[in-house]
Every structure is written in C-alpha cells, then in structure tokens.
Nucleic acid binder design. Structure first.
Lengths: 120, 120
DNA sequence: CCAACTACTATGTATTGCTATATATCTTGC
DNA sequence: GCAAGATATATAGCAATACATAGTAGTTGG
C-alpha cells in the first residue's frame, strides 16, 4: 500500500537530485572523450534514471557550458550523414569537474557521518 | 583569473546539487535520532555548504515530510524554555531514505564509470 | 519525395531556497 | 506584574533555476 506512495516521493526527489548531478555527469562524459549532442542523448537514455532524457534538456546545458568556457565546440564534416558538432572539455572544464566531484564526495561524507543518537 | 569564474559556476552548481541532497540529509539526520527543527538548523549550519541555512528552508521541508508520512511530529514540553516539536522517522521514512541512498549510490557508479574514449 | 540524423529553441510547469514576518512560550530584570 | 529578549515554530511571497514538452530547421541518403 505504501509502495506506490514511496514511488511518488522518490520520483519527485530524484527529479530534484538529478538537477545538480546531470551537469556533472555530462561534464564527466565529455572529459572521457569528445562527443556530439545527439550521441550523448542516445547514450544517456540508457543510463538508469535518464530514460526520458530529451534533446531539449541536453542542448541548453551544452550551450551554457560552452558559454562558461567549460567546453569548446567544433563542427566536423562526416564521411556519411550530416556534420556533427563535437564538444571538448577545456582545462577550466576539467578543473571544474574536479571541484564538483570534490564537493560531491564531501556531501557523501556528511551523509554517512551518523551523529550520535540523542537520548532524551 | 579563471579562479573567480570557477567559483561562480560552482556556486550555481552546488546550489542546485544541494536541492535533492538536503532532503536526504535531513531524513538521515532524523533517522539517527529524533530532533526538533531549531536544533537541526543550528547543527546543520556547521556542516560544510550549509552555513547560510535558514529556518525558512528547514520547516517547509519538515512539514512536507510529515505530510508524506516520512516522519511523525510530537510536541514535548520542556523543563526550561518553550515546548519543542520533535520529529521521528517512520518505517516508511526509513525505507524511503534507504531507497534514496540507493539511487545516490547508483548515481555515483554511473559517474565513476568512465566510458572508453571514442577515437574518431 | 521521404525518412533518419543532427542541432537548436520556445514555452510552460514545478520546485527550491531565501527573506521577512507573525506567533507563542519562557526567562530575566525591575 | 510587566517589558524585553531568547527560544522555537510557522507561513507568505519572491527570484532563480531546471526539466519536460513540443516544435523548428537543415542535411544526407535511398
């Protein structure tokens, strides 16, 4: 009976939790090798929790990251099919990713630090 | 030169990352032992990243968690000072926290799973 | 021409966190 | 007994942000 309730709560929660996480994930993905938008969307759709990821979600983030100088973009003509816009992480992007992961780790530590039970 | 830029980016980012995290942290804190709102605010203000935490942030979350059945609340008259409202995690709350932490872990794994570099 | 691929944008909705304020209780000083 | 301050809970309103939906537009290949 409470199973469905919990799913509703988790849906709302994970939607919020994804917000900060997604940008870091995207940056990490690009840090592992340059990629183009359509490719990223297709790949992430298979990751758990991102089944409904749409292009309208990814491209604005890519644009913002480029504006912030975290990535650079480059059009590449392909032998087959339309040209693709490849994104590559900059040095600032790599350092920023590193800092994000550091904050993420620290959050983990605070979460795991179980404070002593207060016995009234 | 890029140091300040990066801080701006990280500020915006961590503000988003906190959103989902905070609710889980609050639930974890209560899971370690019942507590009242003012106490939680005072304690969390000392945690890294929550220096500016305000009551107006915590109480709405507590109210929502109570409405969702994750916690119960109980007024307790104190020997000294005004009465306090203690929050206790319910069984649903404990299970929900467990599920949240599972999702959090899975996010971690996806983040750490470095996909093989695509060599064009 | 049509279908698939690729990039992008506009808009609506939901949510958060912060500020400010209101209310009630207890303690202290006088 | 009363005013002032500390403790404690709560809510309304605001600005900022992200996500999802849906739609546009261009290119290539059959």
């Amino acid at each position: 009976m409470t199973g469905t309730e919990m799913e509703d709560i988790l849906d709302r929660w994970s939607s919020q939790a994804r917000k900060g996480y997604f940008e870091m994930l995207l940056l990490a993905r690009l840090n592992a090798g340059r990629a183009y938008g359509y490719q990223i969307v297709a790949a992430l759709k298979q990751a758990p929790g991102f089944e409904n990821l749409a292009e309208g979600t990814v491209y604005p983030v890519l644009t913002r990251m480029k504006k912030d100088g975290l990535v650079t973009a480059e059009w590449v003509a392909e032998d087959t099919g339309p040209p693709r816009k490849y994104y590559t992480v900059t040095e600032l992007g790599a350092r920023t990713l590193d800092a994000m992961q550091g904050i993420w780790r620290r959050m983990d530590e605070v979460l795991l630090a179980q404070p002593a039970k207060e016995t009234s």
